[in-house]
Design a binder for these strands. Structure first.
Lengths: 200, 200
DNA sequence: CATTAATTCTATAGATTCATAGAATTCTGG
DNA sequence: CCAGAATTCTATGAATCTATAGAATTAATG
C-alpha cells in the first residue's frame, strides 16, 4: 500500500503523526477520536487508516517519535569530556527544549504510554530507562571523581532530575512565554548547589 | 433522593468515590467506563447514578477528594514556627504520604483534572494555587530571614518542589516498596543543600 | 408486621466510536 | 494523454458507552 520511497508519502505521514500527537496531547488517548485527528489533517476519518493500522499503532508511533531525539541527545552529552556542572546544564537544556520542539509528542509519551499493551510498552521502556541509566552513570562518575559529595545517591538524583525536567516540561507545554534557557539554568543551579560539596 | 443524614449512605458514597478514583487512575477518565466503576463497587452500571449525577461529576468529586487533606496540611506546616529545614521536610513528608494514602485520587487530580470544564476546574485551581502560594511564601520568608541565599527565586523553587513531589508521587503509586519517609528526607536534603547559603 | 423510604436492578434509547471494503479521485511516469 | 499506482472518499457494521425510567428489592421505622 505505502511505498516508503515516495517522499510525498513520508511527508504526509509525518503530518499525520503530528496531528495524532496534538489530539492525543489535548484530549488524552481515550478521549481522542480518529475523527478529530483526521479533521486536523484535512482528511476524512476513514482515510486515516491509510497511514495507521489502528489507533493504538498511532499512539505507539507518537510515543516513539516523542522520545527519539530526547533520548539520543543524552548520549552526546555523556560522551563529552566536560565538568559535571556543564553537563548537567546541557541535560536540562536538552530535556526542556525537547518539550518545546516536540511538546505534544513528549507529553503523550509521558502521560499516555501506560495505555499501550505490555509488548509495545517494553520496547519504549528500554529506551526510557536507557536515558535514566546514562544519567545515573553521569552522577556516579562525578561522585567518583570527587566533583560531587560522596554520600549522593545517584539513582535518586537521576530520577529526581528527570522528574524536575518533566514537571517543568508540563508547564512549558501550557505556557509559551516560559524561557527554556533561563529555566534550564535555574534547574541546574538548584541541583548543583545541592549536590556539589560545600566549600570549607 | 439521597439523604445526607444517613450514615449508611455516606459510607457507600465514599466507597463509590474510591471505586471511581481507582478506575480513573488505572484507565484515565475517558478510558474508564461506568460499568467498570460499578463492577468494582459490586453493583450494576445503572445503579451508579444513584451516587453520581454524571460521570463528569464523579471526576469532580474524586479530584476534590484527592487534594483536600494534601492542601489542608500545608497550612499547618506554615503556621508552625520552625526552622526552614524542618518545614521543608514536613512539606515533602506530607506530599508523599498524601500519595500513599489517597494514591488513586491524587493521581486523578494531577492527571485528569484538565478534562473538566472550565467552571469546575477553576474551583479546584483555587485550592491548588493556594498550596503553591503558601509554599512560595514559606521560601520567601526564609530568604528574608537569611536562612536561604538571597538570590533564590521563590516562585521557581516552590514550583520545583511541587514538581519533585508529584514526580516521586507518581513512582510511589506504582511501587509499593518505596519508603516515603526516606524519600522525603532525600528530597529535602537535595533541595536544602541547593538552597541554603554555603558556609564560608 | 406493615408502611414508607432507600437502594439496586432491568431494559433501553441515543449517541459515538473504531475499523473495513470498495468506489472514486488524484497523482505520476512514459 | 493514458495506464497504473497512490491517496482519499463514502457508507456501513458492530461494539461500546452514558444516562434515564420505572420496576423490584432491601432496609428502616413505628
Amino acid at each position: 500500500m505505502a511505498d516508503r520511497k515516495q517522499p510525498r508519502y513520508n511527508q504526509k505521514k509525518r503530518a499525520a503523526l503530528e496531528a495524532a500527537a496534538a489530539v492525543f496531547a489535548e484530549h488524552g488517548y481515550h478521549g481522542a477520536s480518529t475523527t478529530a485527528i483526521a479533521e486536523r489533517l484535512g482528511i476524512k476519518q476513514g482515510s486515516l487508516y491509510y497511514y495507521f493500522k489502528s489507533k493504538q499503532q498511532a499512539l505507539e508511533e507518537v510515543c516513539a517519535y516523542g522520545i527519539e531525539d530526547y533520548v539520543s541527545r543524552i548520549d552526546g552529552i555523556a560522551a563529552m569530556a566536560l565538568p559535571f556542572a556543564v553537563r548537567l546544564l546541557a541535560v536540562f537544556q536538552s530535556h526542556l527544549s525537547a518539550f518545546r520542539e516536540r511538546r505534544d509528542a513528549m507529553k503523550v509519551y509521558n502521560d499516555e504510554r501506560l495505555y499501550l499493551p505490555e509488548s509495545a510498552r517494553t520496547e519504549l521502556h528500554a529506551r526510557g530507562s536507557g536515558y535514566r541509566k546514562t544519567l545515573e552513570a553521569l552522577f556516579a562518575r562525578a561522585v567518583e571523581k570527587g566533583e560531587l559529595r560522596a554520600d549522593l545517591d545517584s539513582h535518586f538524583a537521576a530520577l529526581t532530575v528527570i522528574g524536575i525536567g518533566n514537571a517543568w516540561g508540563d508547564l512549558i507545554v501550557r505556557d509559551d512565554t516560559l524561557d527554556t534557557t533561563v529555566l534550564a539554568q535555574q534547574c541546574a543551579d538548584l541541583i548543583l548547589r545541592g549536590v556539589v560539596q560545600a566549600v570549607a
